[in-house]
């Protein structure tokens, strides 16, 4: 017993932080927010992404490593609106006061940007709908800009000595990003009005931005995996009025979209969805480049 106690004490001593961390610890729930924190925070922040592109960010466990990371976070940046509802609240119970809801270090993108698909009536028979609306906001580049601005203000007030730095980082990101938006928009102008079948409503903001229309989803209800009867119905629907593309995220199973693609001859496409979604999508710029190019690649008329 005494031996155990000794080990405890040694562990405790080892664990005491030796020096004040100069960098701002940023805990990002999704890789896109980690990437944004890197753009705005540069070398002054240390970012950690709780999920990767192959994971569905809704179905994450509050695993020990995440508790250890959030425990030391100075800023938590997530999509919000219930996307992380199964795990973020548990993690936050172990986090600092400065990152609790309402605090300066608690940044939910869905609180900053205009929200799509906010249901008027919510009932779980409609599937796992989020009463706050669709939380997958990062695929509209204008939203990225809004969140970037907010993030730089938050970083500046957490790390006041470097406030000027964050301001400069933001303005250079801002200029660059806006130029890119113009390029993407002119590149993607041919996509306007195209019809799309999605797996889950993960691309609503992208489609909305590009003026494309989601005509159906492979999931019968959000969060409910595709069923044969639903797919059969979709097949009839697409036969009557064909769609242009079927898209899904890298983390969604391929079966349903491949099946429908084969039956209807509609091209099916995996879009990167977030950073690391494919080899090319290494940062926010390449993510949007790649997404627009992939969508255009299917456009042969």
């Amino acid at each position: 017993m005494q031996q155990l106690l000794r080990i405890f004490i040694v562990l405790l001593l080892c664990a005491t932080p030796t020096a004040v961390q100069a960098k701002v610890n940023v805990f990002a729930c999704e890789p896109e927010w980690a990437a944004l924190a890197k753009e705005v925070g540069g070398a002054k922040v240390k970012t950690f992404a709780a999920t990767h592109a192959k994971q569905d960010p809704h179905y994450i466990r509050a695993r020990p490593s995440l508790i250890a990371k959030i425990r030391r976070a100075d800023l938590v940046i997530c999509s919000g609106s219930g996307l992380e509802i199964g795990w973020l609240p548990i993690l936050l119970q172990k986090a600092k006061l400065g990152v609790q809801p309402g605090a300066i270090g608690y940044l939910m993108a869905t609180n900053i940007v205009p929200i799509l698909e906010k249901p008027a009536v919510v009932d779980r028979s409609m599937g796992d709908v989020h009463p706050e609306g669709n939380p997958h906001v990062h695929l509209n580049p204008n939203n990225i800009l809004l969140v970037a601005k907010e993030l730089s203000i938050r970083l500046a007030s957490i790390d006041t000595p470097n406030a000027g730095f964050y301001q400069r980082q933001l303005s250079s990101f801002n200029t660059q990003w806006q130029q890119n938006i113009k390029t993407w928009e002119s590149n993607a102008s041919v996509l306007k009005g195209k019809t799309v079948v999605v797996h889950h409503r993960a691309f609503s903001y992208l489609l909305n931005w590009l003026g494309m229309n989601a005509v159906a989803s492979l999931e019968p209800k959000p969060g409910i995996p595709p069923t044969t009867s639903h797919l059969e119905g979709l097949l009839q629907q697409l036969k009557a009025s064909p769609a242009d593309i079927i898209i899904r995220t890298p983390y969604e199973p391929s079966g349903a979209s491949k099946w429908l693609s084969e039956k209807t001859g509609t091209p099916n496409l995996v879009l990167p969805y977030t950073i690391g979604g494919d080899a090319e999508s290494r940062n926010l710029f390449t993510l949007f480049n790649r997404s627009v190019n992939l969508l255009k690649g299917t456009n042969h008329d």
């Binding site: 919000g80 609106s81 219930g82 609240p89 608690y106 939910m108 609180n111 989020h130």
Partner: peptide, 21 residues
């Protein structure tokens, strides 16, 4: 700065389900 923070605090609890469910 206050403006940027205020909307979060000012949103009525009934209008959104915050992350504490």
């Amino acid at each position: 700065l206050a403006k940027s923070v205020a909307p979060i605090l000012a949103t009525p609890a009934t209008a959104r389900r915050d992350v504490k469910n």
